[in-house]
Design a binder for these strands. Sequence first.
RNA 1: GGGCCCGUAGCUCAGCUUGGUAGAGCGCCCGGCUGAUAACCGGGAGGUCCCGGGUUCAAAUCCCGGCGGGCCCA
Length: 996
Amino acid sequence: MFRIDVKFDLKLVEESVRRFWRENDIPRKWREVTWRRPLFKFLEGPPTANGYPHVGHIRGRTYKDIVLRFWKLRGYDVWAQGGWDEQGLPVELEVEKKLGFKSKKEIEQFGLDKFALECSKLVDHYLEWWKKYGTELLALWLDLEHAYETRRARYIEHVWSFLREVWKRGLLCEDYRVLPYCPRCETALSDAEVEQGYEDREDPSIFVKFPSRDEENTYYVIWTTTPWTLIDNEAIAVNPRFRYAKVKVEWRGRVEYWWVAEDLVHVLMGKFGVGSYEIVETRLGEELKGRRYIHIFIDDVPLHREHEDRAHYVVTADFVTLEMGTGLVHIAPAHGPEDFEVARKYGLPVTNTVEANGYFNSLAGKYSGKYWLDVSKQVIEDLEKRELLVYKESILHRYPHCWRCGTPLIYRADKQWFIRVSVLRDKLLEELRKVSVFPDHLRDRFENWITNLRDWTISRSRVWGTPLPVWRCRKDPSKILVIGTLDELRRLAKRMPEVEDDLLVHRPWIDQVVLCTEDCDEWIREPFVLDVWLDSGIAWIASVDGIRNRELFEKLYPYDLVTEGIDQTRGWFYSLLATSVLWMGKAPYRSILIQGHVVDKYGQKMSKSKGNVIWAHDLFERWGVDAPRLYIAYKVAPWDTMAFDPDEIKETVRVLSILWNIVKFADTYMTLDKFSPKTHTLDKYLDKLAPEDRWILSRFHSRLSRFLEHMSKYEIHLAAREWINLVVEDLSHRYIRLIRRRVWIEEETETKYAAYAVLYQILKGTLIMGSIFVPHLTEYLWQAFVRKIERDEVESVHLSLLPQVETEYIDEQLEKVFDTLFEIFSEVANLRSRAGIKLRWPVRRVMVKLPDERLADQLSRVRHLLEYLANSKEVVVTTQDFECTPDMVCSDTDVGKIGITRELDKNLLLEAYARELVRRVQFMRSKVNLNVEDKIEIYVDTRDDLIRESLSRYGDYIATETRASNIVIASDIPQDCYVMDWEIEDKKVRIGIRKI
RNA sequence: GGGCCCGUAGCUCAGCUUGGUAGAGCGCCCGGCUGAUAACCGGGAGGUCCCGGGUUCAAAUCCCGGCGGGCCCA
């Protein structure tokens, strides 16, 4: 099943590994919680089942998996329960899209019950994709069998219990508030939701004059970007401390008087194109207070006639600034939180003529029945006609949009349910400070958010969500009852639909539940559902059914880690914190890892409309799983934005193929030589280790140590880079190259087995380390190599343990010596290519001058390695300067001065020819597909004396290198030979080989 | 308007905490190896370290001010 003598094919590898895991139940064994080992407690942030998983999700889930695997390999049990977010606006919108609905009315016509069932069905559909591509295929071993689901009755009961607790503490409130509404979804949104939807938008920016009632021919000039709110205007606000000017202007051929802030007069008159003007009077804002104006829609919107006694005058407010506008702010109490506050203070009427769907109602007179955006246009037109529009332009600004459907939001006053989290601000900050935030520089943002925290609007006028568990007494609507559990509900129920629990806890069924108590014989439910963030926010207890499984809950809470995208600072990270601090008095997590977003390779946000989304399914189809995983792991820090370029995955494929080949190399020779780690233990060879063996041991353990260090700080990219360098640089480029000669020796030498013992141990460690990034390939190699050589090793690499860092192996100086060694080799190669001497041609001498005596001394002791690498007869390492004679090429480098001789005497020449011959024979061997151990006979036909001499002097060498039993110099080559004609430096040579 | 992050080779990113001659991978060009072989290895070209100022013997690195990109808050 696991063979390494085949072509490297990642997708086949993954396929057979998946089968192995399935057949041997490895993920379940991996997840097993013994309660005997320390437990790493992870709380899964539930993905919303309203779409297909894409590369952004895969990134986040790869990190989750890497971290979980890491702790498992450190000897922990891991708590890895899955979870799904299945309700709320996101799901409803997908269903609406599917059914082709454009408004909430259509849902009602369709039937709430049918709609709810459609929602549930949609969730089922997407869950399949999430389970397969977002989880199992990715090899994210969450427990999906026991995954928590926010639509289940058991889960919803926790949200209810939480709210009942909030209610008991007097923090669940009902009140009029000005809130952002999505007119498309016809529901209010929370601050957290609004934060996610700021987008640039072009709006009209208009300056309007309100006629004064007290002064002849005089106007107050205000500025607004929301013309439609003028309909519900009730006052003008000025800053009591600013000075205002009454300006005599000539406008459209008439002379009149305008009030604006004094400091802005010049700028504004310029903007309005008023040629000549004159300030005739100035007043403090405070002095303007109480002055009356004529409402500009007094005729069009009859309602305002009724307000004339108690509104339509100048008020003062500190929030008025001079940054934008005129220093006079129009106040529409229903359409701005600040306006609302002012209205409360002055007792102004709160007029709201706009319904939740964005249409003006019958109170709006002339504007009744129109959509707010159209009203804006019409207001501008009307004001223009009436010559009340002083100036009009447009403005590009950040405007809140619905986070799910993209519709611009409107602010309007309505009755809503709140949790008074604002009173908890300090406690939340205090508890947050105890949490480790990765990266720490994002802590400020989180704190900043909490510092500015406002009360949490939790009611939504929607369908598919956790119902607000509030019932109101029919006879006395001031009486409220909050239900915490289904048991309680059943106990008090007077009427209840006969449906299963999971439906009962949803609209419309729950709406039919009528309760009865001693106080009141008929309690009717408030028809709201809850903000979906409350669902996932309660996961810290609901995921394990904590109100019933108290013991388990207490073992898990608080969790060690929660990790999601940066957008969740105000989403899930916050809702977890708020609910937990409210209910339990502390944060539900010890650390949070905040992940960056994924953008496309041009740095553009991925979106369906742009068509640049990379779906998990396509990604895996093309690249398999391990290569994208390693790519994600090493490319950037978890918290950085990642520009995802699928073409770059090739790089990680290359790394993985190198790993494959290294193991294949080891496997080939270890098998050939019957290496056994039980008899050829590393201990046995410790005093026979070559310097390169001691070097790779040191390098491995220092890399392992840094790997652990990085992982503990969630610097996953740095840990991955350590591992990649271990594979590519240390093992492939260096160590294997250095031990090749030793490994090729056919006799059973101790030095060969020493190399095997070292290489084997390091490869095992490398596979275990790498298993957190590339779980499939490492498993495959574990089975194909490690478990072939050690049958009693643990059955899966994922059930093994990371090796300990053996500090006694770490020798920084030795590592430095080898770094220097390879740098010198590099430079020699450079000098050779400059001098036109191929590596195959030996040089007489390499001179190295190092500044550091100790380094020079140590390097000198491994100069035989340099002689081998550089193909030099001699390497001289000194700290003395040497002369660069005319027969040398030299260079000064970072490490020191390096020179090589370029004279080629006859001896060297003969050796060079021998190598040339070897190379050609090797080429021919591979041409005829000979195996490593096949023996051959070589026939050489040449008339060149030097080549003949080379053959006779280096015959043994050539024979050994090419596994030839004999070499014949002959002018006629036997018929059954494979023959090729060659030219070696203009010398013609015909070579024939045959297998014997 | 405020806060945070980022700006280094054609591309993706290290280096910056603790100043000391600018790094890697990919791509490109050239070469090697042919016993890891549809693999592996080496070399080269390529940079105004976003701009300007300051501190310093010395700045990619520290400080100040801009510019550009991203995120967040108002």
